[in-house]
Protein backbone atom coordinates (compact mmCIF):
# COMPACT_ATOMS: atom_id res chain seq x y z
CA UNK A 1 0.00 0.00 0.00
CA UNK A 2 1.24 3.44 -0.95
CA UNK A 3 2.24 5.79 1.90
CA UNK A 4 -0.22 8.63 2.46
CA UNK A 5 1.08 12.07 1.41
CA UNK A 6 0.16 15.49 2.80
CA UNK A 7 -2.46 15.97 0.09
CA UNK A 8 -4.17 12.75 1.17
CA UNK A 9 -4.53 14.14 4.69
CA UNK A 10 -5.95 17.39 3.26
CA UNK A 11 -8.43 15.30 1.22
CA UNK A 12 -9.42 13.22 4.23
CA UNK A 13 -9.93 16.34 6.34
CA UNK A 14 -12.28 17.82 3.74
CA UNK A 15 -14.29 14.60 3.49
CA UNK A 16 -14.66 14.45 7.29
CA UNK A 17 -15.67 18.12 7.55
CA UNK A 18 -18.29 17.93 4.78
CA UNK A 19 -19.75 14.51 5.65
CA UNK A 20 -19.66 15.26 9.38
CA UNK A 21 -21.62 18.51 9.04
CA UNK A 22 -24.09 16.91 6.62
CA UNK A 23 -24.83 14.14 9.11
CA UNK A 24 -25.93 16.83 11.60
CA UNK A 25 -28.98 17.48 9.37
CA UNK A 26 -29.12 21.16 10.32
CA UNK A 27 -30.49 23.95 8.15
CA UNK A 28 -29.41 27.25 9.72
CA UNK A 29 -31.09 30.45 8.60
CA UNK A 30 -29.06 32.74 6.38
CA UNK A 31 -28.89 36.31 5.11
CA UNK A 32 -30.16 36.94 1.59
CA UNK A 33 -27.76 38.86 -0.63
CA UNK A 34 -28.81 41.87 -2.75
CA UNK A 35 -28.13 39.79 -5.92
CA UNK A 36 -30.77 37.22 -4.97
CA UNK A 37 -33.25 39.85 -3.84
CA UNK A 38 -32.85 41.61 -7.23
CA UNK A 39 -33.48 38.40 -9.17
CA UNK A 40 -36.50 37.44 -7.05
CA UNK A 41 -37.98 40.91 -7.51
CA UNK A 42 -37.38 40.72 -11.26
CA UNK A 43 -39.14 37.36 -11.64
CA UNK A 44 -41.92 38.66 -9.41
CA UNK A 45 -42.32 41.72 -11.63
CA UNK A 46 -43.16 39.61 -14.71
CA UNK A 47 -46.94 39.48 -15.21
CA UNK A 48 -48.63 36.11 -14.62
CA UNK A 49 -49.00 34.27 -17.93
CA UNK A 50 -45.81 35.74 -19.39
CA UNK A 51 -43.94 33.33 -21.61
CA UNK A 52 -40.25 33.18 -20.68
CA UNK A 53 -37.38 31.38 -22.39
CA UNK A 54 -35.38 29.20 -20.01
CA UNK A 55 -32.08 28.13 -21.50
CA UNK A 56 -30.24 25.24 -19.86
CA UNK A 57 -26.71 26.21 -20.87
CA UNK A 58 -24.67 23.83 -18.77
CA UNK A 59 -23.05 20.43 -18.59
CA UNK A 60 -23.89 17.56 -16.28
CA UNK A 61 -20.73 18.27 -14.28
CA UNK A 62 -22.32 21.35 -12.72
CA UNK A 63 -25.53 19.56 -11.66
CA UNK A 64 -24.97 19.77 -7.88
CA UNK A 65 -25.03 23.58 -8.18
CA UNK A 66 -27.31 24.00 -11.16
CA UNK A 67 -30.12 21.66 -10.07
CA UNK A 68 -30.94 23.48 -6.78
CA UNK A 69 -30.75 26.85 -8.59
CA UNK A 70 -32.96 25.73 -11.48
CA UNK A 71 -35.44 23.96 -9.19
CA UNK A 72 -35.88 27.01 -6.94
CA UNK A 73 -36.29 29.28 -9.96
CA UNK A 74 -38.77 26.98 -11.75
CA UNK A 75 -40.83 26.64 -8.54
CA UNK A 76 -41.02 30.42 -8.35
CA UNK A 77 -41.89 30.71 -12.04
CA UNK A 78 -44.59 28.00 -12.07
CA UNK A 79 -45.93 29.24 -8.72
CA UNK A 80 -46.34 32.71 -10.18
CA UNK A 81 -48.11 31.43 -13.27
CA UNK A 82 -45.29 32.15 -15.71
CA UNK A 83 -45.12 29.88 -18.74
CA UNK A 84 -41.55 28.71 -19.39
CA UNK A 85 -40.31 27.41 -22.72
CA UNK A 86 -37.12 25.41 -22.24
CA UNK A 87 -34.20 25.05 -24.61
CA UNK A 88 -30.56 24.01 -24.23
CA UNK A 89 -27.48 25.50 -25.84
CA UNK A 90 -25.29 22.72 -24.44
CA UNK A 91 -26.12 19.10 -25.18
CA UNK A 92 -26.13 17.89 -21.58
CA UNK A 93 -28.46 20.68 -20.50
CA UNK A 94 -31.10 19.08 -22.71
CA UNK A 95 -31.80 15.99 -20.62
CA UNK A 96 -31.41 17.95 -17.38
CA UNK A 97 -33.75 20.73 -18.46
CA UNK A 98 -36.36 18.36 -19.86
CA UNK A 99 -36.48 16.27 -16.68
CA UNK A 100 -36.42 19.26 -14.29
CA UNK A 101 -39.21 21.10 -16.08
CA UNK A 102 -41.28 17.91 -16.15
CA UNK A 103 -40.75 17.33 -12.40
CA UNK A 104 -41.41 20.88 -11.17
CA UNK A 105 -44.37 21.32 -13.56
CA UNK A 106 -45.92 18.16 -12.05
CA UNK A 107 -45.62 19.71 -8.55
CA UNK A 108 -47.78 22.61 -9.77
CA UNK A 109 -50.12 20.46 -11.93
CA UNK A 110 -49.04 22.25 -15.10
CA UNK A 111 -49.86 20.81 -18.49
CA UNK A 112 -47.28 20.25 -21.21
CA UNK A 113 -47.85 22.32 -24.33
CA UNK A 114 -50.17 24.76 -22.55
CA UNK A 115 -48.28 25.87 -19.43
CA UNK A 116 -44.77 24.89 -20.47
CA UNK A 117 -42.80 23.29 -23.27
CA UNK A 118 -39.31 22.00 -23.93
CA UNK A 119 -37.81 22.49 -27.37
CA UNK A 120 -34.43 20.78 -26.99
CA UNK A 121 -30.97 21.58 -28.23
CA UNK A 122 -29.20 23.21 -31.15
CA UNK A 123 -25.45 22.63 -31.48
CA UNK A 124 -24.09 26.05 -32.42
CA UNK A 125 -25.05 28.49 -29.67
CA UNK A 126 -24.45 31.81 -31.44
CA UNK A 127 -26.31 30.58 -34.51
CA UNK A 128 -29.12 29.35 -32.28
CA UNK A 129 -29.46 32.75 -30.56
CA UNK A 130 -29.38 34.64 -33.87
CA UNK A 131 -31.95 32.35 -35.49
CA UNK A 132 -34.21 32.45 -32.42
CA UNK A 133 -34.19 36.21 -32.88
CA UNK A 134 -35.73 35.77 -36.32
CA UNK A 135 -37.91 32.67 -35.86
CA UNK A 136 -38.35 30.28 -32.93
CA UNK A 137 -40.26 27.84 -35.11
CA UNK A 138 -37.56 27.59 -37.76
CA UNK A 139 -34.87 27.13 -35.10
CA UNK A 140 -36.85 24.36 -33.40
CA UNK A 141 -39.36 22.90 -35.90
CA UNK A 142 -40.17 20.17 -33.34
CA UNK A 143 -39.94 19.97 -29.56
CA UNK A 144 -37.56 17.66 -27.67
CA UNK A 145 -39.80 14.58 -27.96
CA UNK A 146 -40.81 15.28 -31.56
CA UNK A 147 -44.14 17.16 -31.43
CA UNK A 148 -44.43 19.60 -34.36
CA UNK A 149 -44.04 23.24 -33.20
CA UNK A 150 -47.58 24.30 -34.15
CA UNK A 151 -49.18 21.35 -32.34
CA UNK A 152 -48.39 22.97 -28.97
CA UNK A 153 -50.78 25.87 -28.16
CA UNK A 154 -48.20 27.66 -25.99
CA UNK A 155 -45.71 27.86 -28.84
CA UNK A 156 -48.24 29.38 -31.22
CA UNK A 157 -48.05 32.54 -29.07
CA UNK A 158 -44.31 33.10 -29.64
CA UNK A 159 -42.64 33.73 -32.96
CA UNK A 160 -39.28 35.31 -32.18
CA UNK A 161 -36.96 36.03 -29.27
CA UNK A 162 -38.42 39.44 -28.53
CA UNK A 163 -41.84 37.84 -27.89
CA UNK A 164 -40.50 36.31 -24.68
CA UNK A 165 -40.91 38.24 -21.42
CA UNK A 166 -37.31 37.40 -20.55
CA UNK A 167 -34.50 34.99 -21.25
CA UNK A 168 -33.28 33.13 -18.19
CA UNK A 169 -29.98 31.40 -18.79
CA UNK A 170 -29.05 28.65 -16.34
CA UNK A 171 -25.37 28.37 -17.05
CA UNK A 172 -22.03 27.00 -15.92
CA UNK A 173 -19.85 28.64 -18.58
CA UNK A 174 -19.74 31.72 -20.77
CA UNK A 175 -23.10 31.20 -22.51
CA UNK A 176 -24.62 34.14 -20.62
CA UNK A 177 -22.13 36.38 -22.44
CA UNK A 178 -23.59 35.26 -25.77
CA UNK A 179 -27.16 35.84 -24.59
CA UNK A 180 -26.16 39.38 -23.59
CA UNK A 181 -24.01 40.22 -26.62
CA UNK A 182 -26.10 38.58 -29.33
CA UNK A 183 -29.58 38.13 -27.81
CA UNK A 184 -30.06 41.29 -25.78
CA UNK A 185 -28.02 43.65 -27.94
CA UNK A 186 -29.59 42.61 -31.23
CA UNK A 187 -33.14 41.60 -30.31
CA UNK A 188 -33.67 43.73 -27.21
CA UNK A 189 -34.72 40.91 -24.89
CA UNK A 190 -34.14 41.09 -21.13
CA UNK A 191 -31.55 38.58 -19.93
CA UNK A 192 -31.10 37.26 -16.39
CA UNK A 193 -28.94 34.36 -15.24
CA UNK A 194 -28.58 31.62 -12.64
CA UNK A 195 -24.93 30.60 -12.71
CA UNK A 196 -22.40 28.45 -10.90
CA UNK A 197 -20.45 30.36 -8.23
CA UNK A 198 -17.23 30.16 -10.23
CA UNK A 199 -18.80 32.32 -12.98
CA UNK A 200 -20.15 35.07 -10.71
CA UNK A 201 -17.16 37.43 -10.90
CA UNK A 202 -16.97 36.96 -14.69
CA UNK A 203 -20.45 38.40 -15.11
CA UNK A 204 -20.21 41.26 -12.60
CA UNK A 205 -19.38 43.84 -15.34
CA UNK A 206 -22.56 42.91 -17.23
CA UNK A 207 -24.68 43.35 -14.10
CA UNK A 208 -22.96 46.65 -13.39
CA UNK A 209 -23.59 47.95 -16.93
CA UNK A 210 -27.25 46.86 -16.79
CA UNK A 211 -26.86 44.39 -19.68
CA UNK A 212 -27.64 41.52 -17.33
CA UNK A 213 -30.86 42.27 -15.43
CA UNK A 214 -30.06 40.05 -12.45
CA UNK A 215 -27.76 37.19 -11.50
CA UNK A 216 -27.82 34.55 -8.78
CA UNK A 217 -24.81 32.34 -8.24
CA UNK A 218 -23.95 29.01 -6.68
CA UNK A 219 -25.43 26.78 -4.02
CA UNK A 220 -25.50 29.74 -1.64
CA UNK A 221 -27.61 31.65 -4.18
CA UNK A 222 -29.94 28.65 -4.46
CA UNK A 223 -30.29 28.51 -0.67
CA UNK A 224 -31.13 32.23 -0.55
CA UNK A 225 -33.67 31.86 -3.37
CA UNK A 226 -35.25 28.90 -1.56
CA UNK A 227 -35.59 31.13 1.50
CA UNK A 228 -37.27 33.88 -0.53
CA UNK A 229 -39.84 31.53 -2.12
CA UNK A 230 -40.36 29.73 1.19
CA UNK A 231 -39.66 26.23 -0.12
CA UNK A 232 -36.64 24.33 1.20
CA UNK A 233 -34.32 22.36 -1.02
CA UNK A 234 -30.82 21.09 -1.67
CA UNK A 235 -29.40 24.61 -1.36
CA UNK A 236 -30.38 25.13 2.26
CA UNK A 237 -29.57 21.53 3.17
CA UNK A 238 -26.01 22.06 1.98
CA UNK A 239 -25.32 25.41 3.61
CA UNK A 240 -23.81 24.18 6.87
CA UNK A 241 -21.41 21.91 4.98
CA UNK A 242 -20.64 24.76 2.59
CA UNK A 243 -19.70 27.11 5.45
CA UNK A 244 -17.68 24.39 7.17
CA UNK A 245 -15.76 23.62 3.97
CA UNK A 246 -14.95 27.33 3.51
CA UNK A 247 -13.59 27.50 7.05
CA UNK A 248 -11.59 24.33 6.45
CA UNK A 249 -9.98 25.84 3.32
CA UNK A 250 -9.23 29.04 5.28
CA UNK A 251 -7.59 26.93 8.00
CA UNK A 252 -5.46 25.17 5.36
CA UNK A 253 -4.39 28.54 3.92
CA UNK A 254 -3.45 29.69 7.43
CA UNK A 255 -1.47 26.52 8.19
CA UNK A 256 0.32 26.73 4.81
CA UNK A 257 1.34 30.35 5.47
CA UNK A 258 2.47 29.67 9.03
CA UNK A 259 4.68 26.83 7.74
CA UNK A 260 6.00 29.08 4.94
CA UNK A 261 6.88 32.04 7.17
CA UNK A 262 8.34 29.85 9.91
CA UNK A 263 10.57 28.04 7.39
CA UNK A 264 11.58 31.33 5.78
CA UNK A 265 12.54 32.98 9.07
CA UNK A 266 14.55 29.87 10.06
CA UNK A 267 16.36 29.95 6.73
CA UNK A 268 16.97 33.67 7.19
CA UNK A 269 18.52 33.09 10.59
CA UNK A 270 20.51 30.13 9.30
Amino acid sequence: MKKLESRHWAFLGLAIVVIGTMLLNLEPDLDVSPDTIRMHAFIDSLPAGSIILVSFDHEASALPEIKPLATAFLRHAFGKGLRPVGIALMAEGTAVGYRLMEQVAAEYHKQYGIDYAFLGYQPQYIAAILSLGESVKQTFPRDYVGHPYDSLPLLREVHKLSDFGAVISIADGNMVTHWVEYGRARFNVTVAAFVTAVMVTSYDPYVSSGQLRAMVGGLRGAAEYEKLIGIGGAGRRGMLAQAASHLYVLALILVGNVIYFTTRSRKGRG
Binding site: M22, P64, E65, T196, A197, V198, A241, Q242
Partner: peptide
Protein backbone atom coordinates in the same frame (compact mmCIF):
# COMPACT_ATOMS: atom_id res chain seq x y z
CA UNK B 1 -10.14 40.03 -9.05
CA UNK B 2 -8.21 36.75 -8.86
CA UNK B 3 -8.79 36.67 -5.09
CA UNK B 4 -12.55 37.14 -5.35
CA UNK B 5 -12.65 34.62 -8.18
CA UNK B 6 -10.64 32.14 -6.12
CA UNK B 7 -13.14 32.61 -3.27
CA UNK B 8 -16.06 31.90 -5.60
CA UNK B 9 -14.17 28.98 -7.18
CA UNK B 10 -13.75 27.40 -3.76
CA UNK B 11 -17.51 27.88 -3.16
CA UNK B 12 -18.31 26.28 -6.50
CA UNK B 13 -16.07 23.25 -6.07
CA UNK B 14 -17.24 22.66 -2.51
CA UNK B 15 -20.88 22.85 -3.65
CA UNK B 16 -20.19 20.18 -6.26
CA UNK B 17 -18.71 17.83 -3.66
CA UNK B 18 -21.53 18.61 -1.23
CA UNK B 19 -24.02 17.64 -3.94
CA UNK B 20 -22.32 14.30 -4.50
CA UNK B 21 -21.93 13.73 -0.74
CA UNK B 22 -25.64 14.42 -0.30
CA UNK B 23 -26.48 11.84 -2.96
CA UNK B 24 -24.24 9.23 -1.31
CA UNK B 25 -25.46 9.91 2.24
Amino acid sequence: FFGTTFGYTVMSRMSTFIGRAEFLL
